[in-house]
Simulated scan of single mutants.
Amino acid sequence: MNIAVDSGNTYAKIGWFDDDKLIRFQARVVWDDLVKEIRSQAPDHIIFSSVSNSISEFKDALGLDIPVLDLSPDTPLPISKNYKTPETLGADRIAAATGAQYLFPDKDLLIIDMGTCITYDYLDHKGSFEGGLISPGVKMRFNALHTFTKRLPQLEPVKVPELIGKSTREAIESGVMNGVLGEVEGIIERYRHISPSLSVVLCGGDTTFFESSLKPAIFVVPELVLIGLNRILRYNVAL
């Protein structure tokens, strides 16, 4: 059994894998519980990806004699990177692209990760990561409207509402949610000019707000990053 860890600024996700099969996952895990969970089911190998904690901190907290692969810019990958600054490329973007390439091989792919930011990444049918876009996420847009104005209220994401808001609250909700929807649909359409046979894969915590509203045919894979991390781990174990 392998474990994939995707650790963010506040919470982590854990995936338990039997070879390539995701047999269990847990989201919104705090650091102390992350360590306890892994200790309770000691795996054969671990892959660790984090934006907030170092690999040494993780190993020290874990206290187990288990091989841990740290996903870094130098980690060998089953995909290639055609990116000007690979050292600045987010591990979550690479993991999501790797997961998408495993699930949908030999296809041109647009991977959309709807998290704190919305990232759009293009992976061609040869498995080359070509780059993409980074856009403000849903909550970031709500926060910005409240923070940079004197009177607009702080609101939270909702299912995509009617286009015409009849109150200030409704207008803000429509502006953010329909604005994101229009952005996503527009960018998908522009990428289809690059590749008419493009397959679109969605992941990330805010996907649930939009998946039923998106008009282009899409695939929704909530645990895409964990699947990609496991593929990277298995690729490195096999080397």
Rank of each mutant, 00 (worst) to 15 (best):
G182I: 08
N82A: 15
T10S: 14
E162K: 15
A96D: 08
E57L: 10
G175P: 01
F104S: 02
G127T: 06
L155K: 10
R141A: 12
P216T: 07
A61R: 04
K81N: 11
I14P: 02
G204V: 04
S7W: 01
M177S: 04
T168H: 11
K159Q: 15
K81G: 10
L233V: 04
V180D: 03
L123S: 02
V51P: 01
K13G: 01
D19N: 15
T149Q: 12
I94T: 05
G137V: 06
P67C: 05
I14M: 06
A91F: 06
D92K: 03
A217T: 11
T208K: 11
E37A: 13
I188W: 08
D18Y: 02
E162T: 13
P157H: 08
L214H: 06
T147S: 14
A4V: 11
L109N: 00
L145R: 07
L145F: 09
E185Y: 10
I47R: 02
V138G: 04
Q101G: 15
S54N: 13
G175T: 01
Y83L: 10
E185L: 09
L64N: 09
D19S: 15
P153Q: 12
E156F: 12
V158E: 09
S197E: 14
K107H: 15
M177W: 03
P78R: 07
R190D: 07
D18C: 14
I46S: 07
F129D: 03
G205A: 12
V201Y: 04
K215L: 10
G205F: 00
L133Y: 12
S167C: 11
L155V: 10
Q154L: 15
T147N: 12
L145C: 11
I94W: 05
T207Y: 06
C117D: 05
L233E: 07
I112D: 00
L155Q: 11
F219L: 13
K36V: 11
Q154C: 14
L22K: 01
G228E: 00
V221H: 03
L202M: 11
Q41T: 14
H146G: 08
A4D: 08
R231I: 12
L133G: 07
T88F: 14
T208Y: 02
T75A: 09
H125V: 08
P216Q: 10
A91V: 05
G131Q: 07
S135A: 15
V237R: 13
L89E: 00
I188V: 11
I194A: 11
I112Q: 05
D124I: 04
R151L: 14
T116A: 06
P76E: 08
D206G: 04
S174Y: 00
P73S: 15
Q154S: 15
F148R: 12
A171W: 06
E223T: 10
L34W: 02
V30C: 13
G175N: 05
V5R: 01
F129W: 05
M177R: 03
T75H: 09
F142I: 08
E37H: 09
S213Q: 12
D124K: 06
L181S: 09
V30I: 14
C203M: 10
F210G: 00
Q41R: 13
L69M: 13
K84Q: 15
S56Y: 13
G228L: 06
